[in-house]
Amino acid sequence: QSPGVSWGCHGGCLTCSAANGCLSCKPRFFFFLERSGMRQVGVCVSSCPSGYYGTRSRSPDMNKCTKCGLSNCDSCFNKNFCMRCKEGYYLYHGKCHVTCPEGLIPSTMQRECVH
């Protein structure tokens, strides 16, 4: 066991250190680098924060939070498919629009283009 690394961590952490937080996660948890002031600290989560989505893989240490690829997206299913847009944008078929396609109107509350 390398110096400074502990196995007695909480939540979804498998290994952690005082300085860097989680270093690796328990199976099925997503690794995410959280900004904490000037530092970045590792955390292990079961759902990724806003603006990120979880990618799963056969090797557990590859489960991580990945940034949504679409600008103006608050919550995405994968890199290119949005589920909820940021304020001022409207969702239609996985994309965030400033104005809705013809025949649809923007719903500000739902942040979606609706019929």
């Binding site: 299913f77 498919f81 589920m83 996985g94």
Partner: peptide, 8 residues
């Protein structure tokens, strides 16, 4: 349904 994962 618009997005479905049956991976893994």
């Amino acid at each position: 349904l618009q997005a479905l994962t049956l991976a893994l």
